[in-house]
């Protein structure tokens, strides 16, 4: 089965580093270091972070990559 992949766009001008996305992401795609949010390229495009970010700072683009093997 094709596995969904997401491309994460963080708007750092809006992000207040509240940590909601860090904790809500099912694949731990985010970390915070030196008061800055970073993403680790593991996104499966569940869109939870985009939905709950109170600062509209995240956009997740979805791409269905047929070549990505399922885990």
């Amino acid at each position: 089965m094709a596995k969904k992949q997401g491309i994460v766009h963080i708007n750092h001008k809006r992000c207040k580093v509240c940590g909601i996305c860090v904790k809500i992401c099912p694949v731990q795609n985010y970390t915070i270091s030196q008061n800055k949010l970073t993403e680790l390229g593991k996104c499966i495009a569940c869109l939870q972070c985009e939905r709950y970010c109170p600062d509209m700072a995240l956009i997740i683009d979805t791409k269905d990559d047929k070549k990505t093997p399922t885990r």
């Binding site: 207040k16 970010c53 109170p54 600062d55 700072a57």
Partner: peptide, 13 residues
């Protein structure tokens, strides 16, 4: 934007 509410405030949602 960004609005002036605190980090994590529900108002933004």
């Amino acid at each position: 934007l960004p609005h002036q509410w605190c980090p994590g405030c529900g108002n933004g949602i």
